[in-house]
């Protein structure tokens, strides 16, 4: 009888684990996976992404970082951030601490709308609240404002909160499912490359580990020649695997950013970043 009970318990435990989302346990396993892959690499170093794995790319990057290519974007972003809206308010009025040093707290779950709000989306919400049109979420002025706000948060530890409520956990779980689900004609998931093969090369490009990948966004990509937000990269990744990209403000991308950033809790913000 007791043996049967134990067996029942053993069967029930995994089912319960699969049913109830547990961000803290997921994070421990996620970070543990990378520690197992690269025992020598300190957690905080993951924010340097591909530069941990290629000496030549790292040397070039360090030279580039003497005069970071995103410098112009940060200056432009600061000018935009400091400018007044027609109603006299500014971006600072929409954020805690006047918008300075807060990027580590995004994305957030908004219980009112039941949706995840990323920092770029929060910037657009601020504009709408003050009667201004939304900006493009992928690049341009919004990416520059994002770059400035992230720059003021550099070194702050990422602290994405997933409230213990049903809708917030559902959004988190949807992002997790997106990250691990294979899609597109080429049949890749985000995890296929950035979790299973970080540090390996696809042609000449080094794959960045998923851990800490969000910490450097927005990034100046030499390939783009300007700044791009995380969503711009999601769209690029989807196209690479021949999957039709979602809309920049889609729930799919919001949830994915929510899950992905939450996995890097505790790592320092290193953005804006520069990538090849």
């Amino acid at each position: 009888m007791r043996r049967w009970l134990l067996l029942l318990l053993a069967l029930a435990a995994p089912v319960a684990a699969a049913a109830a989302p547990n961000p803290a346990a997921d994070r421990a396993a996620f970070q543990g996976w990378f520690r197992h892959l690269f025992p020598q690499l300190p957690l905080a170093k993951y924010v340097d992404g591909p530069y941990n794995f290629s000496a030549s790319e790292r040397a070039q990057w360090q030279q580039i970082m003497e005069l970071p290519p995103y410098g112009f974007a940060v200056d432009h972003g600061k000018a935009l951030f400091d400018a007044r809206f027609p109603d006299g308010a500014g971006y600072a009025s929409c954020f805690p601490h006047g918008g300075i040093g807060i990027a580590q707290d995004y994305p957030q779950f908004d219980p009112k709308t039941g949706r995840v709000v990323t920092l770029p989306i929060a910037i657009n919400r601020c504009r709408v609240a003050h009667g201004l049109p939304k900006l493009k979420l992928t690049t341009g002025d919004l990416a520059d404002i994002d770059a400035y706000m992230v720059r003021t948060s550099r070194g702050h530890k990422i602290d994405v909160v997933v409230p213990d409520t049903k809708p917030a956990l559902a959004a988190y779980e949807a992002g997790k499912e997106y990250f691990y689900s294979r899609r597109g004609q080429l049949n890749f998931s985000c995890a296929s490359c950035h979790l299973q093969y970080p540090g390996h090369r696809v042609r000449g490009d080094t794959l960045a580990p998923a851990l800490g990948i969000t910490a450097s966004f927005p990034i100046y990509r030499s390939k783009w020649g300007n700044m791009g937000t995380l969503v711009r990269r999601f769209i690029g990744c989807n196209k690479n695997i021949r999957s039709a990209p979602d809309k920049p403000d889609s729930l799919a991308y919001r949830d994915l950013e929510y899950f992905l950033t939450a996995m890097s809790n505790g790592l320092p913000i290193a953005g804006p970043g520069a990538r090849p």
Binding site: A18, A25, D26, A28, A29, F30, G32, W33, K176, E177, Y180, S181, R182, S189, A191, S192, L195, Q196
Partner: peptide, 10 residues
């Protein structure tokens, strides 16, 4: 169904 197979476990 299959996506859960790719999740790292501890």
């Amino acid at each position: 169904r299959l996506w859960r197979n790719e999740v790292p476990r501890q």
